[in-house]
C-alpha cells in the first residue's frame, strides 16, 4: 500500500484515493494549433523516476492533489493541493 500524506486529511492509504494521471500536462489555449492539442492530449513523457501526477482523495476530502511520486519505487516526495486557491480559502498550508 502506498501512503499518501493528504494536506487536508493527513496520511492515508492510497486505496482511499483515485489516480488521475500525468500532472505536468499544460493544456494549450483553445485557439492553439491542432498539433499543440495533439501533444497535450496524446503524448506522454512517461517518466521512469519522479513524476508529478494528480490524485483525488475520493474517499476522503474529495480534493484533487498534485503528488510527486517515483514511478519505480512508489516513494512519495511531495503532496500539495492541485488548487492552491482552495487551500488558501480553507486555511490549509502545505
Amino acid at each position: 500500500m502506498i501512503r499518501i500524506p493528504c494536506p487536508f486529511c493527513g496520511t492515508r492509504d492510497h486505496s482511499e484515493f483515485s489516480y488521475g494521471g500525468d500532472g505536468s500536462i499544460q493544456y494549450p489555449a483553445l485557439d492553439a494549433p491542432v498539433q499543440d492539442w495533439h501533444d497535450a492530449v496524446f503524448q506522454r513523457e512517461n517518466i521512469c523516476g519522479v513524476q508529478t501526477e494528480t490524485w483525488q482523495h475520493v474517499n476522503g476530502c474529495r480534493m484533487w492533489l498534485l503528488v510527486d511520486r517515483d514511478t519505480m519505487t512508489h516513494e512519495i516526495h511531495d503532496v500539495r493541493p492541485a488548487h492552491p486557491g482552495m487551500a488558501k480559502v480553507l486555511g490549509v498550508t502545505s
Binding site: I2, G21, D22, N46, W55, R69, T71
Partner: peptide, 8 residues
C-alpha cells in the same frame, strides 16, 4: 491494472 502508473 493497479490504476497508477508504475515501472515496478
Amino acid at each position: 491494472l493497479d490504476w497508477y502508473k508504475s515501472y515496478a
